[in-house]
Amino acid sequence: MTNKEKLNMLEELLDIEENTLQEDARLDEINQWDSMSVISLIALFDDTFERVITPEEIKEFVTIKDIIDEMDRGDGNWQQES
């Protein structure tokens, strides 16, 4: 999965216009980032990367890139396993 595809997934999750989300965007500066998007993110990791990401791990994320890095990690593990 490309970074662009991952960004598009997050745009859809956050209900943000396609191709407008930047990797360096800070989560605390994104209006749409709230408790419901945390739940959606847990579901996205579970659906797409088949692993559970904990609320504690999500709290450590500062930027969109942190989420994408985590996806890369998941992506790799998932591919290795399958």
Binding site: S35, M36, V38, I39, I42, A43, D46, V52, T54, P55, I58
Partner: peptide, 12 residues
């Protein structure tokens, strides 16, 4: 209510 903890519980 901690929604994200509960959600994690319900999907695991």
């Amino acid at each position: 209510m901690n929604g994200s903890e509960i959600f994690t519980f319900t999907i695991t």
